[in-house]
Design a protein around this nucleic acid. Sequence first.
DNA 1: GCGATCACG
DNA 2: GACGTACGTGATCGCA
Length: 930
Amino acid sequence: MPSAPVTEDSHLYLIDASAYIFRAYHALPPLTRASDGLPVGAVSGFCNMLWKLLEELKGGERPTHFACVFDKSSYSFRNDLYPEYKANRDEPPEDLRPQFPLVREAAVAFHTHALEQEGYEADDLIATYARQAEAKGARVTIVSSDKDLMQLVTDKIHMLDTMKNKQIDADAVFEKFGVTPDKVIDVQALAGDSVDNIPGAPGIGVKTAATLLEEYGTVEELLERAEEIKQPKRRQTLIEHAEQVRTSKLLVTLKDDVPVEVALEDLAVADPDPKTLIDFLEKMEFRTITRRVRETFEAEGVIDETTAGDIGFDAENYVCIRDFKTLEDWIARAHEAGVIGLDTETNSLDCQTCDLVGISIALSPNEACYIPLGHIDPDHSGGSDMFDADPPRQIRKEDALKALKPLLEDPSVLKVGQNFKYDYTVFARNGIHVTPIDDTMLISFALHAGMHGHGMDELSERYFHHSPIPFKEVAGTGKSQITFDRVPLDKATEYAAEDADVTLRLWQHFKPWLHREKVTTVYETLDRPLIPVLAGMERAGIKVDRDHLSRMSSDFAQRMAGLEDAAYKAAGGEFNMGSPKQIGDILFGEMGLPGGKKTKSGQWSTDASQLEYLAAQGHELPQIILDWRMLSKLRSTYTEALQDAINPETGRVHTSYSMAGAQTGRLSSTDPNLQNIPVRTEEGRKIREAFIAEDGNVLISADYSQIELRLLAHIADIDALKNAFKEGLDIHAMTASEMFDTPIEGMDPMVRRKAKAINFGIIYGISAFGLANQLGIERSEASDYIKAYFEKFPGIRKYMDETKDFAKDNLFVKTAFGRKLHLKEMNSKNGAQRAFAERQAINAPIQGSAADIIKRAMIAMPEALAKKKLDAKMLLQVHDELIFEVPEAQAEDTIETVRKVMEKAPLPALQLSVPLDVDARAAKTWAEAH
DNA sequence: GCGATCACG
DNA sequence: GACGTACGTGATCGCA
């Protein structure tokens, strides 16, 4: 650490760190480290404060000497004077305690002294250094708002409350105590202090103390002449408690001659070591301040950017291509590069219907271009003067695409995209089949599922400490938002070229990690090849009978109106049937029915299980609400919304599959969600009748039977289960028979139902609470069932324990095909969080392996169908089910091929020890085919 | 923008 | 002994 003499030009900063920690803890919102839940709110506040003081204070305020001062322990010489000193302090809160050592670590990371000394409080050290510096004519700033330090204030020594950003000088002290700083200890001695347990004189507060001191000068003088005090009460108090007041003065007087271990000169401010500081901040996972610190260091040129692997972003180098010659030049350079970042800009978020507006290409970091192709009025902003608008000078779309096509289809040039299924579809609609490809979103997902999201902005911030321009910034937001074709070209170029740039950089950053993390195969055989398959399914869409939906909608609306009348009658007045809040108030408030559970927000819960319970007791209104809710759900989410989703050009509904949404590796379906079309109730199933085949065609539905239980049997290696599947037994009946020791023949359906619930429960990471809830039985009974199950199938318990142990050690679990799901809460101190992670650890390998298998089937499917010269088109995936559309005459052959591909899907990567069974049927509607 | 609810596997 | 609980999703509505 450097040393420098303290002179009149010096400015010493003393941070009252111990007091700061408590204040930050209470004043700042709680913050925990994302990866393990470690509480770090006070540490974060401390780091921000230090950084601000050290780096952002420019000019005369900048410190020349600097130190953070801590309390060493709770004991000090004051305890010898007065054993009760600070005796009323509570232990620091549980989630503050681990932060004390971290704050000391932070002080060191910032390259400042972390001072503490046995037997003295931080305040005494501060007093000593402050007085020493003052004696040399230096200025002193004490960073604290603690009133105990106010006695130190002089015209050289000030205090600074960083949270309120307020200087505390002699005037401010006078305002608080009614005396000048040198008399503060006298006021405190008289008034006492409940926080520090300083007794003072009973009945005398700050105001009275100030008045008395005005007349008598000091405590000593006052006590000497106590007999002269006119008010009898005060006189008596002061005479009686004279000794106590003298002790109090000793307690509040800071010791300014501590034999300090570090000399004042050695507190000279030192530049932090960039690597040490950034490493610490990154370890704490403070994203914002890490970025700020990094940027400052970069600006000051103290970080070697290339060794950090981070080449700064510089939009200056982005090029807007508006003439053909330049485009040809970039295409040639792209061939040369061999790998390019690629991104498309469109005029809507729906890649099925949008128009291509522009293309961006990145060749290397900071070397990127944007090719506008469909911009309107690019030289005016927002088209306010449409009549004057000149068409922008941009390359004709057909010409550009024609020139780009060979590049985009060139097998020797890798095209890297982020969420590339979108761009793939846009290009496909323009007659270009982009290949070969990589997708940074999917690479991130293969590497880090469960650790963080996989959106580009988040990845860029996390790995490059760079925030790409938000879309909102170029297009605006809300009602005044414009489509990308109206964004002026300069802004469009900055935004679009940056996206391609970031994408290429992400690829460079991630690619080596695929091997290191052993997920190359997952990415290359399960995720990447699925892109064109899903793109094809989304483009194909499924035919939906609008009239059928429309008729159902009217029918539902009528019946809902009837139910509304009945409900108002039963409730004795009108209310909003769609408001759970109002329903709760009526049922449990006005009608006084016995309320069940409450929701998190304190409202009465009115979910189906609650209403069913009330209905079963013979109450009318709950049943009406249940019936209405079902119809309302079916109508708003399905019969109405699905009509709007029909693409007018194709007459079909085109969903969009999300490939990196579900943590376990499952797909999800949005806009609209076609994976949750009703089937469980009679009424709901009718909606599936609206999903139909084109004339002359049929729909085929093929689904895996019990795939997750089969995988459990295989993964946990349970002979009894495996044999049951091999023999084609009813697995739930078999389980019941084993558990309850009854023959399968003539089994009570209730018994089988229990076993079925347990089988599902096992897959979910069973708990007595959950099982009891599911079956509507007592928790103790559920507990007995689980016990019986584990006695019959000890291998399952063993599998569960081993899986949990693995997850605790490695913080991830794997599917049978090697897909990883990271579970960072496995060792959380929070019991509920940990239990949740444990159940995920049980479930994810099973659910994820099933997802992997159907993905393999889907990837193999197009070729298998083509080979058999079948015209079947794969349309939908619903986790364990695939829907196809095929000319009627080919239905049987298609079923045969589909079944074979699905049943053999794990091969050759994995030979399951149980057979996979596939049920398949052909029909005119999805309702019948399922 | 969030919680409650409910549709699916 | 209390806590908070079945796994994975997405859409709609009311409400602040």
